[in-house]
């Protein structure tokens, strides 16, 4: 492969990896606080994508309004899911919570299937996000810069929130010891709602960008990116924010390069991600960035 070709693939990989990272954040934050793999998380990509279609195509809203509205609703739906399905099970065994998450995932997918149909809908990507340009002979879609750019800004904001603000301190305290946090007067339910709003909003951003990148929206749109993001979160070390970002980028770049170097294997790109998951779980279950094993809390 030429250097130009490599650079091209690298940009594609970073773009894909950024999407994984955005979604992986939600998995890792919820896991950090509730020790729950929220398997419905990926479906929020689909929710946001459909909401985007409604806003843009059905109501013909200006794109900033349509996209922001889609994100706000997606964020609230995330909090609603926690309130309705997970909070009542807070004291139940972990397995019940996990089953509830899988159930919620099926529910969202099938609601979409019933009400919106199985036929893919085209996503009306606003013109500002479409098109591409050429630099140094490289062909770069505008989205390939937009996706990492948006991701970078959102992650900077999130890391500031978690690392520097008092709400963030309370979130980290909650992840470390929920009982002690409660005994210090912190309203834990509100923090958990906030976690779900943040996580599903980021997944929503991922969903909208995904729909612009692959503009065919169907009820199962979120399944594969959701699973890949979950793999990214495990790869980076679940429960660890920086790890989710690293894991997302590594997975995205590896996946794209694999297909670029071994075009014959391109059909196995998804299998590759799962093989990677198995290898990580076998060799380094704490992930790339994780240090402590939290088996006691599983």
């Amino acid at each position: 492969m030429t250097w130009a070709g490599f650079a091209q693939q690298l940009i594609n990989g970073i773009s894909l990896g950024s999407l994984y990272a955005l979604v992986a954040i939600g998995y890792t934050m919820v896991y950090g606080i509730l020790r729950l793999i929220n398997f419905a998380h990926g479906d929020f990509l689909m929710v946001a994508a459909y909401l985007g279609i409604f806003g843009l195509a059905m109501f013909s809203l200006p794109w900033p309004v349509a996209l922001v509205a889609a994100l706000v609703i997606t964020g609230l739906m995330g909090a609603l899911l926690e309130r309705g399905a997970y909070r009542p099970l807070r004291r139940a065994p972990r397995l019940s919570l996990l089953i509830a998450a899988i159930g919620a995932s099926f529910l969202l997918e099938n609601l979409a299937l019933v009400f919106l149909g199985g036929r893919p809908l085209p996503f009306p990507t606003p013109a500002v996000f479409a098109g591409s340009f050429q630099v140094f002979g490289l062909y770069i879609p505008r989205l390939s810069l937009l996706i990492p750019g948006v991701t970078l800004i959102l992650l900077a904001g999130l890391f500031y929130l978690v690392g520097r603000t008092r709400v963030g301190m309370a979130l980290r305290a909650l992840a470390h010891d929920g009982e002690a946090t409660q005994l210090l007067g912190i309203n834990v339910n509100r923090l958990i709602s906030l976690t779900f709003v943040l996580g599903s909003t980021l997944a929503g951003v991922g969903g909208l960008l995904w729909a612009m990148k692959y503009p065919q929206v169907n009820p199962f749109l979120g399944v594969l990116p959701g699973l890949k993001a979950f793999i990214a979160a495990v790869l980076g070390g679940i429960g660890n924010l920086a790890g989710a970002v690293v894991g997302g980028l590594v997975l995205g770049v590896l996946e794209v390069l694999l297909v670029a170097w071994f075009p014959a294997w391109s059909g196995y790109r998804d299998a590759f991600a799962f093989i990677l998951l198995i290898i990580v779980l076998l060799i380094r279950p704490t992930g790339l960035v994780g240090e402590t094993v939290m088996e006691d809390k599983l």
């Binding site: 008092r166 709400v167 301190m169 309370a170 980290r172 305290a173 210090l184 912190i186 309203n187």
Partner: peptide, 11 residues
């Protein structure tokens, strides 16, 4: 930060 956390509950 340990000492700051409880203030969040009183905010």
């Amino acid at each position: 930060e340990n000492v700051l956390v409880p203030f969040q509950g009183r905010s």
